[in-house]
Design a protein around this nucleic acid. Structure first.
Length: 162
DNA sequence: CGAATTTGACCAGCGC
DNA sequence: GCGCTGGTCAAATTCG
């Protein structure tokens, strides 16, 4: 019955040709308490647009914290330091591009992630995180580090309210 | 050889 | 109640 809306707009530049390894140069994350974020430009001519997207989980007691990252990148997969295993891919009707479903490969970590490209701007990649990682990061991504800690700061949010 | 990806099938929720 | 859309699973395949 709760609507969790969290956007993490950040600009990022990644290598156009990277399958396994992703490259992240600049990342600007702006987390507002489920309200609004502003446009931010990174020092690499990368800019992100403000996006107010309400993620509503209209379920009975089913509240899930989702964290949407809107990233301007050429690659779909953003290396956040965690290992992800793709478990599905669907073509959403609203998007010309398919949406990929990833899951954390950790033993006890059941964090899910969705990666979807914008139909308007094919360079915009929307990465939606679901859940909080319960294990340390394998790889330290300084650009994503502060983003993740902000996500964890919102962790107790899912414990309150019913 | 093991782990991760791919792709279709299956299922659940919502709308009509 | 049926159909559509979206999400997950699972088996086969490929990569490392």
């Amino acid at each position: 019955m709760e609507n969790y809306h969290m956007l993490f707009p950040d600009g990022s530049s990644a290598s156009p040709s990277s399958s396994s390894s992703l490259a992240m140069a600049n990342h600007q994350s702006y987390l507002q308490g489920g309200d609004l974020i502003g446009t931010r430009k990174v020092g690499d001519e990368k800019e992100v647009s403000e996006s107010s997207e309400v993620i509503r989980v209209g379920k009975k007691g089913t509240r899930k914290h989702k964290y949407a990252f809107q990233t301007r990148s050429q690659v779909d997969i953003l290396d956040d330091g965690y290992r992800w295993r793709k478990y599905g891919q669907k073509t959403v009707k609203n998007s010309k591009f398919p949406r990929s479903y990833y899951r954390c490969t950790h033993k006890e970590c059941n964090v899910k992630k969705q990666v979807q490209r914008s139909s308007k701007d094919d360079e915009i990649v929307v990465t939606t995180y679901e859940g909080i990682h319960t294990h340390p990061v394998e790889k330290f991504t300084e650009n994503f580090e502060h983003i993740l800690r902000q996500m964890q700061s919102y962790n107790p949010l899912c414990s309150q309210n019913n």
